[in-house]
């Protein structure tokens, strides 16, 4: 089976000569939810931003459903079928909820009229708030809108950068429940998370990134009980566990 998303030994970063990613590899199979974990500064966000075309990749490749998208410009990624929800500032606060979604729908030809109804069915709160400026939404509502905006283009793979950031535990549960529904609708998910417990509860598999490279990859249920996970978070090596 062709992987939905495949990082192949990528190196990259914001400044030339200062790599954040140092040969990171990861494979996400169709229909999976994969959690990308790791301590602060490990390069998790940089890795998904690199796949989204926002951070230069110097070495290695990123493949989406078998197609090489390493050099694809960021604005073409939605056309390729790759959706991305950044961690912060992930909605256009100066546009209404409906305008956020209409903009996304208008830019991608394959996003037909039905896609709006589809995301409103998935996020009924947004339907009620469609005329409200996105800047006036609560944290949880913003996160829903950000996911809905990315889903409008009917992506085959959705990458989310810390969707639980700044949310109450109850809202994290609601957001993650919706993500499970998104996966059940056929969308593959790569989830960057600091909330390890919540991420492992929803994910099928997980990878731990340390200093720009994956150090531990496995089934989420196995990693939840793996002492090596805590060791990597605390700055230790695999051998210390």
């Amino acid at each position: 089976m062709i992987p939905a998303l495949e990082f192949n030994a990528i190196e990259g970063g914001y400044e030339p000569g200062l790599p954040i990613l140092r040969g990171a590899s990861l494979t996400v199979m169709p229909g999976e939810i994969v959690a990308l974990l790791g301590p602060n500064g490990a390069g998790k966000s940089t890795m998904v931003k690199a796949a989204a075309g926002l951070v230069p990749i110097w070495v290695g490749t990123v493949r989406l459903n078998g197609r090489d998208i390493t050099a694809t410009p960021a604005h073409r990624m939605v056309h390729e079928g790759l959706g991305f929800v950044p961690q912060t500032e992930n909605v256009f606060t100066n546009l209404s909820v409906l305008e956020n979604l209409l903009l996304a729908a208008a830019l991608v030809p394959k996003a037909r009229r039905g896609s709006l109804d589809r995301v409103f069915a998935l996020f009924p709160d947004l339907d009620r708030l469609r005329k409200l400026a996105a800047g006036r939404l609560s944290g949880g509502q913003r996160q829903m809108l950000a996911v809905a905006r990315a889903l409008i283009a009917s992506p085959s793979v959705l990458m989310l950068d810390e969707p639980s950031a700044g949310l109450s535990p109850k809202l994290v549960g609601v957001v993650f429940e919706r993500l499970r529904a998104v996966r059940d609708a056929g969308v593959t998910i790569l989830l960057v998370e600091q909330n390890v417990k919540a991420a492992l509860a929803i994910a099928d598999r997980a990878a731990v990134l340390v200093e720009g490279r994956e150090r531990l990859v496995g089934r989420a249920t196995d990693l939840a009980d793996d002492r090596r996970l805590a060791s990597l978070y605390l700055g230790g090596g695999l051998e210390e566990a």
């Binding site: 989204a52 075309g53 926002l54 410009p73 960021a74 604005h75 073409r76 990624m77 939605v78 056309h79 991305f84 950044p86 500032e89 992930n90 909605v91 256009f92 606060t93 100066n94 546009l95 305008e99 209409l102 903009l103 996304a104 208008a106 830019l107 991608v108 905006r149 283009a153």
Partner: peptide, 24 residues
């Protein structure tokens, strides 16, 4: 119009606009 919304989106956050599919 889509162009107008894309202009307002780019004015607020060019990186997010690109992610959303706007040709900045």
């Amino acid at each position: 119009t889509t162009l107008g919304r894309a202009m307002r989106a780019t004015a607020l956050n060019p990186a997010l606009a690109r992610v959303a599919g706007v040709d900045v």
